[in-house]
């Protein structure tokens, strides 16, 4: 390829240039996704009510720690996904992804420590098929926030699309899990810690394909 053709390319790009509207600030987009996730959480909690039996020790501390951890992880992962969709903000994306992961681990650690230290309530059972409905419920609740974040990412320039999709899936599921966590009826104190903490990874696995397809589709729509 000659350099002349590069010059011609530059001239043609400049000649056919059309004005574009720059993307919104990252912070504003994170707040919009948070608003979607928050609205779903409020609606679900208002409809189903809080998880029963929280007054019993050791319910509250572990429960609140997990709710905070999931919310922070969800917002952090979505923020990282949106940062990865903007060239030049990859460093911020990595920091946000790592920070949110560490936050969730810390909250899981606090909750687990509290559960181990507290006297047994008799329902500290974990495992089996009864864990799954809660996970699928959280994934269903994740869809609006995850797809909205995908739309926002597609409207930017997602040059690291695989990271964007994985983080959107994990973050969206974590945001959905906040609502599922608050209203969860599954018995077992460890369920609220282990299953709810692992749900974002499961959600990322399940959602990464549809999110990738939607991202590509919306990217093509945005470019045309």
């Amino acid at each position: 390829m000659s350099r002349d053709s590069t010059d011609i390319l530059i001239s043609s790009l400049a000649r056919d240039l059309k004005p574009v509207r720059p993307v919104r600030p990252l912070r504003g987009e994170i707040l919009r996704v948070a608003a979607v996730g928050g609205a779903i959480t409020i609606a679900v909690v208002a409809g189903l009510g809080l998880r029963p039996g929280l007054a019993a020790v050791p319910g509250w501390t572990a429960f609140v720690a997990m709710a905070i951890g999931l919310a922070v992880f969800g917002l952090g992962s979505i923020s990282a996904a949106l940062a990865f969709a903007r060239p030049g903000l990859e460093g911020r994306g990595v920091a946000l992804a790592l920070g949110s992961g560490v936050s969730l681990l810390v909250c899981v650690g606090i909750a687990a420590f509290w559960l181990r230290a507290a006297p047994s309530t008799g329902d500290a059972v974990w495992g089996g098929a009864r864990e799954l409905p809660c996970v699928f419920f959280s994934i269903a609740l994740a869809l609006p926030a995850a797809f909205f974040a995908t739309y926002l990412a597609a409207s930017a320039a997602p040059i690291h699309s695989s990271w964007t999709c994985v983080l959107t899936g994990a973050g969206g599921t974590a945001l959905g899990m906040v609502a599922a966590h608050l209203t969860c009826r599954t018995p077992g104190a460890w369920h609220t810690v282990l299953t709810h903490a692992l749900a974002p990874a499961f959600g990322a696995l399940l959602l990464v394909v549809p999110i990738t397809l939607m991202l590509r589709r919306w990217q093509l729509t945005a470019q045309s």
Partner: peptide, 21 residues
């Protein structure tokens, strides 16, 4: 760069944006 030009914001440094692409 042409396709992604809308993803640049003035308050952002240009060179990291460019070199990411």
């Amino acid at each position: 760069v042409h396709r992604a030009r809308h993803s640049y914001r003035r308050e952002q440094q240009f060179e990291p944006w460019l070199y990411a692409i």
